[in-house]
Simulated scan of single mutants.
Amino acid sequence: MMNPEPNRRLCQLYHEGVVPYHIAWEWQQSVVARKKAHPETKDVLLLLEHPPVYTLGQGATTEFLNFDPADTRYEVCRVERGGEVTYHAPGQLVGYPILDLKHYQPDLHWYLRQLEEVVIRAIAPFGLQGERIAGLTGVWVDGHKIAAIGIKVSRWITMHGFAINVCPDLEGFRQIVPCGIRDRPVGSLAQFIPGISVSQVRHELVTAFAEVMNVSLIPANHSFLIEPASLA
Results as ranks from 00 to 15, higher is better:
51 P>D: 11
63 E>H: 14
200 Q>I: 04
183 D>F: 08
132 R>W: 07
122 A>N: 03
197 S>W: 04
224 F>I: 13
85 V>T: 01
29 Q>K: 15
103 H>G: 12
117 E>D: 10
21 Y>I: 08
130 G>Q: 03
51 P>R: 05
146 I>C: 06
202 R>F: 04
101 L>M: 11
135 G>M: 09
166 V>K: 00
227 E>Q: 15
83 G>P: 00
163 A>L: 01
3 N>M: 12
194 P>N: 06
197 S>D: 02
199 S>C: 09
49 E>N: 08
62 T>S: 14
6 P>Q: 08
3 N>P: 00
185 P>G: 03
123 I>L: 02
153 V>Y: 10
38 H>N: 13
144 H>T: 04
201 V>Y: 02
101 L>I: 10
132 R>M: 03
117 E>S: 05
172 G>S: 06
50 H>Q: 02
203 H>Y: 13
149 I>R: 12
31 V>K: 01
128 L>D: 00
101 L>G: 07
137 T>N: 04
189 L>R: 10
216 S>Q: 03
112 L>G: 02
145 K>L: 07
213 M>S: 01
111 Y>T: 00
66 N>D: 14
65 L>T: 13
88 H>E: 08
102 K>H: 12
187 G>F: 04
165 N>P: 03
39 P>V: 10
8 R>L: 13
22 H>S: 15
75 E>Y: 06
127 G>C: 07
117 E>N: 09
108 L>R: 03
69 P>G: 05
141 V>L: 11
106 P>I: 02
112 L>A: 07
182 R>D: 15
39 P>M: 09
